[in-house]
């Protein structure tokens, strides 16, 4: 994975709550077996509305999305994260995220930043009234805009992976001997699959 230390650019205000994964990428686009090609279909159901924020040209390739609570609820499809990444979005700021989506985001270096509702509301206001440029500093866990600095939390492990470009699978494989020992014991004590 590529190391990410800073994310800087225009913030897209998508002022809606509970955006589900069927909205992010409808199921009809999931028959592909590749990991790319989903960006063009991202949010396709909303894009038919000419006023939809992503139809504004200034937001093409904007790296930061600001949105409402419970973003990414619904399905486990990682295609949702792949589609968003392909739009050029590298960070999402929202009051809360759905769990599976959040896990998938981590595997793809998509940074999810949780902020209180009132802060997100203020960011919406600012981004809707003029072009809002945010600077996200992963190492220091800060967001800067105008003269303001916001702080955010990231799990220590995820931050470590992100700024060093490390991958969870490498970490797991480096512990494979431990894992093997563990599984060996399990088979004699607590796993009862009749493997025939």
């Amino acid at each position: 994975m590529k190391a990410i230390k800073k994310i800087q650019g225009i913030a897209i205000p998508m002022n809606m709550t509970d955006i589900d994964t069927d909205i992010i990428i409808p199921a009809q686009y999931l028959t592909s077996t590749s990991q790319t090609g989903y960006g063009q279909h991202a949010f396709s159901r909303l894009k038919s509305d000419p006023d939809f924020v992503l139809n504004q040209s200034k937001y093409s390739q904007a790296p930061i999305l600001i949105t409402g609570a419970n973003f990414g609820c619904g399905s486990s499809r990682e295609h949702a994260v792949w589609a968003i990444k392909e739009l050029g979005i590298n960070a999402i700021i929202a009051p809360s995220f759905a769990d599976i989506f959040a896990n998938n985001a981590k595997k793809n270096g998509l940074v999810l930043i949780q902020q209180p509702q009132d802060v997100v509301d203020k960011l919406f206001n600012d981004a809707e009234s003029s072009e809002l440029i945010l600077k996200i500093d992963i190492e220091n866990q800060t967001i800067q805009y105008y003269e303001n600095t916001l702080e955010f939390t990231l799990s220590e492990f995820f931050k470590h992976c992100l700024i060093n470009g490390l991958d969870e699978l490498d970490y797991l494989m480096s512990n494979i001997d431990n894992i093997k020992d563990f599984k060996q014991k399990q088979v004699s004590n607590s796993l009862f699959i009749n493997r025939q």
Partner: peptide, 23 residues
């Protein structure tokens, strides 16, 4: 029992494990 994304499916295939914080 819980749903996971495709990257995590790959982790489970390769290592029989995944990384997770306790809910």
């Amino acid at each position: 029992a819980f749903g996971i994304g495709t990257s995590t499916v790959g982790h489970v295939f390769a290592s029989g494990c995944l990384l997770m914080n306790k809910p």
